[in-house]
Design a protein around this nucleic acid. Structure first.
Lengths: 246, 246
DNA sequence: CGTGTAATTGAACTGCCTCAATAATAGTGG
DNA sequence: CCACTATTATTGAGGCAGTTCAATTACACG
């Protein structure tokens, strides 16, 4: 089986039941692959794409571009995620998608996907479920950025990213790749760069995380989850990963 | 045709093409109706409902309940909206839904909906699209509450609600029903009640809105849209409503 | 090794929050 | 219909979390 198909099927299995026939249908999907450099946009606000992307390697981020040029990052996506599945049924992109660090994405034509959904509704339902989990993550981000103080906000983001990475087996022990800068962290959590730095320093001094060289190390999961009020149930995964709590 | 079916079909037509056969399939859906009092919860965090609700009358709100008892409102929904369509494919509610003012909702069994999707994929796609617009609204809320100052935040919320109400013909001139308190406004926009009040007073003094007795009057749409950076394209409606700009 | 970018730190400022007190409004029973 | 009570809105004053601006240090890359 092709690596791209494998990644998609494994992802869908994180939350949905995928039968043999369904897996075969997925394997019949064709795609093109594209490599992206750090910070390279691959979909812009206003585009009307005819394909949906699947992250194969690395990480991508979605963001709103404000009139003054500032960005608001909305979510981050790793291997297996479909960061623009909504273009299947919404013509116009209301936000942009760019690579965080270097990344590889596969593009699958909408036509092929919708045709597959008609023949094998369960695949449609699984990808629908995927988009619904996406929405749940957005909801959590609303709460995170509106109702939590800066430290909790950052702790929660790190917990979510690490938990999702671990569920997709993209971590090494307590470490995950997070090739993101302080500025981007600020544009995700709605805080000034100086505050990002100071908050990060606090977490570091308290020996809860280590964050440099594009890597995030979760030194004290229980405390981070507590501070960030992190309850993973909104991620709707079938089987919670085992979090390292050393 | 039944009023409930009519409402759903009209709603789907705001963004999707619904053929005669599709409309007939919608009309075969059965449902139960329930009346709700002000602030009455009808789904709680943690529930695993086997039905999805359709708002028939009034308004409902979705919210996260925080450990300290505070609420974070996530979105508001009016006649035609399905505020918990995600339960079709996500078992557990990660948030609660309550009536804002008194409301009437219809409950449609999941089984009936998914069976209909298998027979008439276009209906599934239309409701899928509905959930995707939902997600777009959540994304906008992230940006609103993270990257805009208090005045812009409030202006944007009012513009969105009014625009959506007008698209569903739920306004009377420049007035819409918004039976919400300052506390709830604060728990939506992430600001303290005192700030809500002062911001509201500013908009009132500047003759941009009137807001009392559960009604919102948009006195100066152009200025509100400007201050709130409101660009309705994220709502993905086929036909923009004509906004009163007197 | 030099240059540009990103991280770090300090200091002053301010928008928003908190708390508290008062006014208005809505709901309830006589 | 009015009086009584509970809830909600309004306003003021003081404090502080987080912003802004600027300067310095560390780091990555050619």
């Amino acid at each position: 089986m092709d690596r791209v198909h494998r990644i998609l099927i494994d992802k869908l299995k994180e939350h949905s039941r995928i039968g043999v026939d369904d897996a075969l249908a997925v394997q019949s999907l064709s795609f093109t692959v594209r490599e992206l450099g750090r910070n390279e946009d691959f979909i812009r606000q206003g585009d009307t794409p005819k394909v949906s992307a699947l992250v194969v390697e690395g990480m991508v981020g979605r963001y709103h571009l404000m009139p003054n040029g500032r960005r608001q990052y909305l979510s981050f996506h790793m291997a297996g995620d479909m960061p623009d599945s909504q273009t299947l049924f919404l013509d116009r992109m209301d936000h942009a998608v760019c690579a965080i660090g270097s990344a590889v994405v596969a593009s699958i034509p909408h036509k092929q996907l919708t045709r597959t959904f008609e023949v094998r509704p369960q695949i449609g339902f699984a990808i629908w479920r995927e988009t619904l989990i996406d929405a749940a993550i957005f909801r959590e981000a609303i709460t995170n950025n509106s109702a939590r103080d800066m430290t909790a906000r950052m702790a929660h983001l790190f917990c979510e990213l690490f938990y999702r990475a671990e569920a997709s087996r993209l971590t090494r022990g307590r470490v995950m790749a997070l090739p993101i800068g302080l500025a981007q962290l600020g544009e995700t959590l709605g805080m000034a760069i100086a505050t990002v730095n100071r908050t990060l320093a606090d977490l570091r001094v308290a020996r809860m995380i280590e964050f440099r060289g594009g890597e995030l190390e979760m030194l004290d999961w229980p405390r981070l989850a507590d501070i960030g009020q992190f309850d993973p149930s909104y991620l709707h995964l079938k089987k919670p990963p085992a979090i390292v709590d050393g």
